[in-house]
Structures are given as structure tokens and as C-alpha cells.
Lab assay of single mutants.
Amino acid sequence: QEVDTIELTRQVKEKLAKNGICQRIFGEKVLGLSQGSVSDMLSRPKPWSKLTQKGREPFIRMQLWLNG
């Protein structure tokens, strides 16, 4: 299904801030990505339709983390 990447990243940033989790830790533990990649993804999320399967994976992980 289509994911609203802008809304998703907004919710993730909100939860990170609320729980005092830094992007570096979130990136390493949840997404398996560097802090730079995570920062870029959270500040400039690409539309779901423009992402490859590999590009979608971190957003799917974010969704699971939010719902977890």
C-alpha cells in the first residue's frame, strides 16, 4: 500500500523528540543507516511512488517502529 512519507517522517520526528532519542541511535538500531542518511530522509522524504523497493524499506521500518 501507498505510504504518506511526509506524514510518516513527521510522526517519527515527533516520537524521537518526545522520547529523547537521537537520530544517530534511531538510524543505527532501527533503520540500519548512518545518521546522515536518516537526517536526509527525515528532512526531505521522497514520495512513495518515486522510491525503489530498497528505498521504501526504511519507511516500512519506520512504520513498524511507530506501530510497535
Rank of each mutant, 00 (worst) to 15 (best):
G36A: 15
E7T: 02
V30A: 05
K50T: 11
Q11C: 03
G20C: 03
S49M: 03
K29M: 05
F59I: 01
M41W: 14
R61T: 09
R10C: 06
I60L: 13
Q63H: 14
R10L: 05
L16D: 07
V12D: 11
S37E: 14
Q53G: 08
V38P: 03
S37T: 10
P45H: 09
P47M: 09
T52W: 14
M41Y: 13
G32T: 04
S34V: 08
Q1N: 02
G20D: 04
T52C: 09
I6E: 12
L64D: 14
E28A: 12
L42Q: 03
I25R: 11
G55Y: 10
P45I: 08
W48A: 00
N67I: 03
E28M: 08
I25K: 12
E57F: 04
K18Q: 08
R61D: 01
D4V: 01
K50W: 05
A17H: 09
T9P: 04
G20V: 02
L51F: 04
C22V: 06
K54Y: 02
I60R: 15
P47D: 07
K29P: 02
A17S: 08
D4I: 01
S37Y: 07
S49E: 08
G68S: 05
G55L: 12
M41I: 12
G55H: 08
P47A: 10
G32A: 10
G27K: 08
E2G: 11
L33T: 11
T5H: 08
R10Y: 04
Q11S: 08
G36V: 10
K54A: 13
L42E: 04
S39G: 14
L16C: 11
D4K: 09
Q35M: 12
R61K: 15
F59C: 00
G68M: 10
V3H: 06
K50Q: 14
Q1A: 15
C22H: 13
R44F: 12
N67E: 15
G68K: 10
R24Y: 10
V38E: 04
M41Q: 07
K15T: 06
R56N: 00
R10I: 04
Q11W: 02
L8R: 13
A17T: 07
G32P: 06
M62V: 02
K29R: 11
S34R: 14
K15G: 03
K13G: 02
I21Q: 07
S49G: 08
T5W: 07
P58T: 14
Q23M: 06
K18R: 08
L64Q: 15
L8S: 13
S43E: 13
I6H: 13
R24V: 06
C22Q: 05
G68Y: 02
Q1S: 14
L42R: 05
S37I: 11
E57L: 06
Q53S: 12
R24P: 01
V38L: 12
S34D: 12
M62G: 01
S34L: 09
K50L: 10
T52I: 13
L42F: 07
G32N: 06
I21R: 02
F26N: 00
G27D: 01
R56L: 02
N67F: 02
R10Q: 08
G27R: 07
E57A: 12
E28L: 09
E28V: 06
I60C: 08
K15F: 07
K18Y: 01
Q53L: 11
W65Q: 00
K29E: 14
Q63N: 03
A17Q: 09
S37G: 09
G68C: 05
V12M: 10
P47K: 12
I25H: 15
K13Q: 10
C22T: 14
E28N: 08
S39L: 10
A17G: 06
L51I: 09
G55D: 15
V3C: 02
T52D: 15
K54M: 04
Q11A: 09
E7S: 15
E28Y: 05
R61L: 07
E57D: 07
N19H: 12
L64G: 11
Q1W: 05
K46T: 06
I21A: 02
F26A: 01
T5S: 07
S39R: 13
M62W: 03
G36T: 13
D40A: 07
M62K: 00
L8W: 07
M62T: 04
L33F: 08
G55M: 12
G32S: 06
E2N: 05
L51G: 00
D40R: 01
T5M: 12
V12H: 08
L64V: 08
P47L: 12
L33R: 06
P58V: 13
F59T: 01
L8N: 13
F26K: 02
G36Y: 05
E2K: 11
S49W: 06
C22K: 05
P45K: 07
S37C: 15
Q35V: 13
S43M: 15
N67S: 12
D4E: 10
F59M: 01
D4F: 03
G68T: 02
I6Q: 14
K13W: 02
